[in-house]
Design a protein around this nucleic acid. Structure first.
Lengths: 237, 237
DNA sequence: TTCCAAAATATTGTTGACAATTATCGACAG
DNA sequence: CTGTCGATAATTGTCAACAATATTTTGGAA
């Protein structure tokens, strides 16, 4: 078995083709904020950085555009997406709806406490990453928490949806979150788990809604983290 | 203004590029059930049928794969997707969650009755299509109703999600619905609108959930509409 | 110095060709 | 007649070259 890839929370399909590999590489780079929103993704550069042909790069970029991770301007090139205020509102509203509804279903599962075990574990990892100032791991784990929670419902459609929403949230945080304060705190994750464990439907839903609300309100649209045009991309593995 | 394209319910972006055009052509063909689930989409054939290069075809197919409209098997080719029982369950469950949650939000809009006007109009068109046995238009309008309803909430993320879910539903219907009975009846659409008009939250949510439940239960997995391997694709415009 | 136009450069869009993999068909042994 | 093996054909994955478009630089005049 190969070493677990950087993002262990994404469901890994069959043997990854060349284009899939590139897709994941760029995707991870964006989510980890090594590629900041707004930077231009010149095909030749990616081509050179990942040792593949331009057709491969173009295919990967097309998929990323479809995921709203990059914006593809005709005849101008690809840029890491810069979600605006409206998109931020829409993404968080969708998350509140979906994740609250999910909790409802989870509480109907007979073996919920067992399944929550791994999530408690995950929150501990979040705390550890936070305390050792490992921002990249921490963002990744924060997303993983939400995705993993949805995954308990065993609904592929919703799981993939949450994956997409979390990715877009990462971009939003990269743009509008102050580096100092934490956008998605593990305390609140713990609270949600507690409410779930004791079977409190109202409490769990409220905790989740509040958590996402807080997350959204921590965004500062006034002075956004402007992308540095000179921050060119180079592979840093 | 150009003549309205076949699918008027999809949000049309800026000038469509070559790949977008192909994407829509194939998409519509699948939704309209001119391309049945399971048929192989050979690149050269599409290439020839739509008068474009293979790179364009490949890009379009990649996007369609991402939307779960076609399945892309490595080194084997593209096939129109054949959602299984599990996927059917997941899609309908997701729809129940999302669409019920949407109703909640719609009822908080002050000018809801005004916005519902166009939906009443749409239901009338559904009935008309049904009565003149126009199955293609009718399936299209049924989808349009649900998408348009979500669109009233003015949330791009949810609108695109519903678009995707309705597309997948079309595939499911193509596979598992008996041609005789109607999967998504306009009567039930009317009921939902009525409950919404009178501001009955419980009633509207129940009507929507029941509608989707009925829709799902009308699927027959035993004898599925097996794809005819000899049914090769040729453009029929 | 500042502004504008035009050449020069860089980047993207498209096409075609080649390599790698898979599907098909026929021969042949059991 | 059935099933397996091997060669041929068809299809996909990848790459490199060319055309079209955008960006930058250069040069000159107000």
């Amino acid at each position: 078995m190969a070493a677990p890839p950087a993002s262990s929370w994404r469901d890994e399909g069959q043997p990854p083709g060349e284009v899939d590999r590139l897709y994941l590489e760029i995707f991870d780079a964006v989510i980890d904020q090594r590629l900041r929103p707004g930077v231009k993704l010149t095909e030749a550069v990616l081509c050179d950085a990942f040792a593949c042909s331009r057709s491969t790069v173009r295919a990967a970029l097309a998929q990323l555009q479809h995921d709203k991770i990059v914006e593809l301007q005709p005849n101008r090139g690809a840029f890491v997406a810069q979600p605006d205020i409206k998109e931020t509102r829409d993404v968080f509203e969708a998350r509140r709806m979906v994740e609250a509804a999910i909790l409802d279903k989870l509480l109907s599962l007979p073996d919920l406490p067992d399944r929550l075990q791994q999530l408690w574990q995950m929150v501990r990892q979040e705390r550890a990453a936070f305390e050792r100032q490992d921002r990249v791991s921490w963002i990744r784990l924060s997303n993983a928490f939400h995705v993993q929670l949805v995954r308990l419902a065993e609904n592929e459609v919703l799981t993939e949806l949450m994956n997409s929403l979390c990715s877009r949230t990462s971009l939003i945080i990269a743009l509008y979150d102050k580096p100092g304060c934490s956008a998605c705190s593990f305390d609140e994750h713990e609270q949600i788990l507690q409410q779930l464990s004791r079977g409190d439907r109202q409490g769990a839903q409220h905790a989740m809604r509040q958590h996402l609300q807080d997350c959204e309100e921590r965004m500062h649209f006034a002075d956004r983290n402007v992308p540095d045009p000179w921050t060119m991309f180079h592979r840093q593995l």
